[in-house]
Structure formats: C-alpha cells, structure tokens
Design a protein around this nucleic acid. Structure first.
Lengths: 135, 135
DNA sequence: GTACGTGCAAAGGTTTTGCATTACA
DNA sequence: TGTAATGCAAAACCTTTGCACGTAC
C-alpha cells in the first residue's frame, strides 16, 4: 500500500507500477492507447481496461491530468502544475508552455462566474512539419 | 446554389437551411445531438448522419468552428471570430469571452513552432450552480 | 482471508461510412 | 438530367462496465 495524501492508498501491482513509471516525467502527453502499447511490451497480457482503470484512478488522485485538446481522443499529462500547451495543427504534437500569463477577466465580463482556473491552447506548425512544407 | 467564398456552392436543401438557421446567432454551443433534436421538431425524418454531414461541411467552409472543450462530445460554435470560453465545471455550460488577451510567447519558448492562433478556456462555477451550492 | 486489481468480453456513446433513394439546380 | 444531399443501417472508434479470477497486503 502506498499512501497518496491522507487516507488514500493504492495496491502496488506490477501493472500499476509500470504505468506510473511510464508516465512519470513523460512529456509526450500519451493517450490510453499509447500507454497500453508501451506497457504491453513488459506485460503482454495487460488489458486496455486495466490501463483505463488506472488512468481514471490516478486522475482521481490528482496525480495526472486529462487533456481535452485532441477532438479524437483523450491525452494524459503527468505534469499537474498549471501550464499551457502548444499543438501542431499538422502532426498534432503537443508541447508544454510553462509561462504564467496572469490572465484576468474584468468582473463585468465574467457573467457572474467564479473563475477557478484557465488553460491556453496555442496552435501552430512545428519545426518538423514546417520543413516538410505541409502547411 | 448559394455561394460561400469563391468556387464553393451548396445546394439549399430544407434540412440544411434549417440547420444553418438554427445555428445562426446561437450562443449555446450545441452538440450534434442538440442540433438533431432541434431540427427533428420541424423535420421528424431528418437523420443524425445528415446533421453530422452538414456540420462537417459547414466546418470545412469555415462557417462554424468545432470546440474541443468537452471531453465527451464535440460542440459547435457559429461565432468564428477569435474569442475564448468560460466553462462551468458543474453544469458544463459554455459562455463566450470576447476579450483580446494579446498573448505572446517569447521566441525562446516556442520550440520553433510558427504560432497561428490561440484559445483560452476559463474554468469556474456559474451563478446558477453557485446558488445551488454544488461547489 | 478480504478487498482490491486484473483481464476478458460485452456494452455504451459518439461519430463516420456505404449505399440506395430523393431532390435541388 | 446529373450531381449532390438525404436517410437508413451498419461499422468504427474510444471508453466504460460486469464479472470471475487472481493477487497484494
């Protein structure tokens, strides 16, 4: 049992440890399928359901963040510090932007909302795709 | 045939006109299902495929924008001017933010990307949900 | 030993596609 | 009349769920 915050404990199964290990420090914003493919090399019998279960659990624990950037599938980010993303419109590669833009909405434009956070998506074309001239 | 930009023309079917009419000026960021339900009242035989086809066509023409804000389904926005969104974490309501934040990333942090646009998602709790105290 | 995790299969939800029919132009 | 759009059904795809079995603790 490993403790995560007060009261929360997780059994340390080999599959779970492999998933956490794969995600730790991973800057590639992998999808569930990406995680599944990577872990399958060590654990050929692991199921996609186990990957999804674990990603959900880790999300609940606040250990990772789900990115709603790609219209087609969810990506996961182990970096839970507030930060933003830069997405290549061509190859869909996602890169971190670690800048605090200090965004503020004037009270009159908040529609009475209580603002709790923000996330910026920058769109562009990455160096590799620019070289290929696909833009 | 109605002209949209150079060369591009669309047949004006009743279903398509109804969809365009429903979307025009609609600030509710509807999903495909929302559009389908609304149009079904006038055209009980319209199919969801037709709605999807038309949304895709209109997106291609640049008449509407697909929002990747909701992890569960796509929303559509007829306002194609650059603007941002404020999302209620509780009821998932989406509200427009028409402010230009003039975001700039220092060249050193761009990873060689050519930046073409940006979109900010603000998260918060809307007045109705605050009153209900679900936060 | 017990609760939790795993793996398989099936189901769920959204979106896309194939194809025959219909209708705009 | 010719081409594009519609509507239906089926498929594709990602994700979730039910359940029996296995395993961490």
């Amino acid at each position: 049992m490993k403790k995560y915050g007060k009261d929360i404990t997780l059994k340390q199964t080999p599959q779970r440890l492999a998933i956490i290990n794969f995600l730790d420090g991973n800057k590639n914003h992998p999808t569930a399928e990406d995680v599944y493919r990577a872990i399958s090399r060590q654990f050929p019998t692991i199921s996609l359901a186990t990957v999804y279960n674990n990603l959900e659990t880790l999300k609940q624990l606040g250990i990772l963040r789900e990115l709603t950037i790609d219209p087609d599938k969810k990506h996961f980010d182990t970096d839970i510090k507030p930060h933003h993303h830069l997405i290549c419109k061509v190859c869909r590669r996602i890169v971190d932007i670690d800048i605090d833009f200090n965004l503020n909405i004037p009270d009159g434009c908040k529609c009475g909302f209580e603002i709790t956070g923000s996330h910026i998506e920058f769109y562009g074309v990455c160096p590799a795709c620019r070289r290929k001239g696909i833009n």
